[in-house]
Design a protein around this nucleic acid. Sequence first.
DNA 1: GATAATTTGTTATAATAATAACGAATAAAA
DNA 2: TTTTATTCGTTATTATTATAACAAATTATC
Lengths: 224, 224
Amino acid sequence: MIKSGDKQMGKKDNISSSVIQRLPRYYRFLSELEKEGITHVNSGELAQRMRSTASQVRQDFNCFGEFGQQGIGYSVKGLTKEIENILGLKNRYPAILIGAGNIGTAIANQLTFENKCFQLIGIFDNDENKIGSEVAGLTVQSILSLDEFCKNNHVETAVLCVPKTAAAELAHQLYKLGIKSYWNFSHYDLKLLYPDIVVENVHLSDSIMQLCFRITQSTNIDKQ
Amino acid sequence: MIKSGDKQMGKKDNISSSVIQRLPRYYRFLSELEKEGITHVNSGELAQRMRSTASQVRQDFNCFGEFGQQGIGYSVKGLTKEIENILGLKNRYPAILIGAGNIGTAIANQLTFENKCFQLIGIFDNDENKIGSEVAGLTVQSILSLDEFCKNNHVETAVLCVPKTAAAELAHQLYKLGIKSYWNFSHYDLKLLYPDIVVENVHLSDSIMQLCFRITQSTNIDKQ
DNA sequence: GATAATTTGTTATAATAATAACGAATAAAA
DNA sequence: TTTTATTCGTTATTATTATAACAAATTATC
């Protein structure tokens, strides 16, 4: 019998975040290969698409198991399934979203129409003008009914699309409701508050600053 | 005289991307310190806020120059300015955005109201229903007028909020128009097309998969 | 004014990540 | 059937990144 966490399922215990960051990319390129009708791929070809090295490709997969076959390579379908398993894409996590502004609405639509693992079951806002309106097929609820909703429904994940100023207090409330995983679009570091939570940050302003840095650097180099 | 690229401006030539990724975070925490009325900070306190080590803080800054004072620490205002300089936040880059959907609209608002370095001067879409409507104070233009617009206006950066299927062709068009830097929200790796461009990717679906992985992993660990 | 306490900048070390090398397994060719 | 060409999985090496250690500079204290 294979239990979750069983050694048979994987090889390494502590996977480095560098490897994890590459997994969705592998998944994406494998999907493309499948669409192109390619059934088998070797580490070199995959590396070329990923702008990586064959060595790294092989070692990345080796963290989890032996997915390939010597002399042949990897089955595109098989490898796709393995990565799906590793990432847990077959799981279904009920999620709520707080903040039905521009980004909140965009993310709500993304969650509802372009994603399977997270199922958006509630949207909340504190703006009277937004409450009652429809976003991604759901009616925006008052933030005041958040507690009751979370007590009546199992909520695994919260998506935070609120301003920085509201993030800390809101996180406190959600943590007390037992929510331990967050997709965080607010410009605030939740991880500092509670070390035992899982947070995936999308800091758009950090991203824009890095773009600014790289443009500035490249134009300076050109001028030299 | 200090020229750009002059050794006086910095110390290291090749800054690692790990350091660059931390810079916006430093900037953020320094802004918070300034708001709290704190004028000076030492590497240890800053490290604590950043969830880092004093050693790393000192070494990060040392890539660019000597910003602190032995026995005292760093001036919050002074350090903020230095990071602003390094990141090039004082620059003003004209930008266009393509794809006025949900995410496009959200990003357009972010660019217009919560950012200074990029100035949004044009929004384009190919959807007849969107052309002519107003987004972030600008009128959405037809994608057919993109070429003419770019020839009449200096455009430094393009923000891509289009579906994966449209990204490659669009990037080709923009590259021909001389645009070499991209804030890319489409699920496609532009860098593969043209190695000489600057791309900052925001791959939301990669982000969501990583969140899924970490939740799945943490729930499996709990069950053991 | 001398000494102790801070705290930086820098060098040395340790830890991590990426690449290269190579044996073992498989398929194709001779 | 044997040999050759592939290609993985794994180990060894190199490169990169993070941490620790310590001298030099500054301030505060005695």
